[in-house]
Simulated scan of single mutants.
Amino acid sequence: MRKVERQRLLKNLIQTHEIERQEDFVKLLQAQSIDVTQATISRDIKEMQLIKVPNADEGYHYSLPLEKKMDVKEKLRRLFKEAYLTHHQKDYFIVIKALPGNGTAIANILDQLQAEAIFGTIGGDDTVLVICKSEVQAQEFSIFIENLLK
């Protein structure tokens, strides 16, 4: 299962259950025939910036962060730090290669950037095609990516 899909499920589980431990996520996902490890859940919790809040019986349960919005550029920087492999620009196009399972997440964040240069993106498992409005804008956006990686 892809990370984006798994994290969407985690978000739904938080909204429908009071989940106190990482192992509870694992059990609920396994009940849906989704094989996942506690270590994977731990990484997801960190990336999603989940927090623990008090519940009625003096315990704590996971919750989504309180209206904390991470800057889209910072999201992209973090994702590139973890998953980026390379990118190449040709004419109006930029092809970004990433670790498997990260292409759609990168494409999604690029769309959220609402960059003037980007006409659209297509995200696969490990590849993103960025279609720019002009060759000059593609060159500029390629430089933006390089600067993001510094």
Results as ranks from 00 to 15, higher is better:
Ser142Met: 05
Glu18Gly: 07
Ser42Arg: 15
His88Lys: 15
Lys27Ser: 15
Lys3Cys: 01
Lys52Gly: 01
Tyr62Val: 00
Glu23Thr: 13
Lys133Val: 15
Thr104His: 03
His87Lys: 07
Gly124Thr: 13
Glu74Ser: 10
Lys68Ser: 11
Thr127Met: 14
Arg77Val: 03
Asn147His: 11
Ile145Lys: 07
Gly101Gln: 08
Gln32Trp: 06
Phe80Gln: 08
Val36Gln: 02
Tyr60Asp: 06
Val95Met: 11
Ala117His: 01
Lys81Thr: 02
Ile51Gln: 13
Leu28Arg: 11
Val4Arg: 10
Ile131Met: 15
Ala83Gly: 07
Asp57His: 10
Lys52Met: 10
Leu76Trp: 01
Ile94Ala: 02
Lys73Gly: 04
Cys132Gly: 13
Glu135Ser: 15
Asn108Ile: 02
Leu28Ile: 09
Thr121Asp: 10
Ile122Arg: 15
Ala138Met: 04
Lys69Pro: 01
Ala138Arg: 02
Phe141Ala: 02
Leu66Glu: 08
Arg77Ile: 09
Leu64Gln: 11
Lys46Leu: 12
Tyr92Val: 06
Thr16Met: 03
Ile143Met: 09
Leu13Met: 06
Asn12Met: 09
Lys97Tyr: 06
Lys90Pro: 03
Lys75Cys: 15
Arg77Gln: 15
Leu9Asn: 07
Lys27Glu: 12
Val36Glu: 02
Ser33Glu: 14
Lys46Tyr: 09
Thr16Trp: 03
Lys81Tyr: 03
Ala39Leu: 09
Leu113Phe: 11
Pro65Arg: 11
Thr121Cys: 11
Lys97Ile: 05
Ile94Gln: 00
Asp35Glu: 12
Lys75Leu: 14
Leu64Val: 06
Tyr84Lys: 03
Val95Pro: 01
Met70Asp: 10
Glu20Met: 10
Leu28Ser: 07
Ile34Arg: 12
Arg8Trp: 05
Lys90Gly: 03
Tyr84Arg: 06
Arg6Phe: 10
Pro100Phe: 09
Ile34Trp: 10
Leu148Met: 13
Leu13Gly: 01
Gln49His: 11
